[in-house]
Amino acid sequence: MAWLNDEGQWIILMGFIISVGIFFLALLVNQSILVGQTTAEAVLDFPKSDIQDLRNEVWVIYSRYNNTPSEQDKVIRDIEVISLIKKNAVVNITPGMWRVHYFNGITNYTEVIYDANNTFFYFYY
């Protein structure tokens, strides 16, 4: 390197490293806005409390009206009809085996809460 001044090479190297660093950080920032649905929206979309409440209510109906099928049918109809109109969710409850079916277009949930014919012991929650 003939008469070039080779002092300050460290400064140039640092400048180079920092500029590459800034470039990658910019790439990261750029990627970060790619997120579609935020966590809060996903939580709001998932009908957690609807399903918990429904299970709870079916258990209440089972424990109160297990021996009176005519009462069961009326109360189950209450839930099915109100749910469709107010919550836009299809609910289907089968007494006897106490199967709960819930579907609102996104979340599909089916569970046998208490099967009288099955000796398996179910716990409440």
Partner: peptide, 19 residues
């Protein structure tokens, strides 16, 4: 379509829900 509408058909009850 970036995000779908909430139309659905529930197989067990054969219910079609259109909003």
């Amino acid at each position: 379509m970036l995000s779908e509408p909430r139309w659905f058909f529930d197989d067990p009850t054969k219910t079609l829900v259109i909003t």
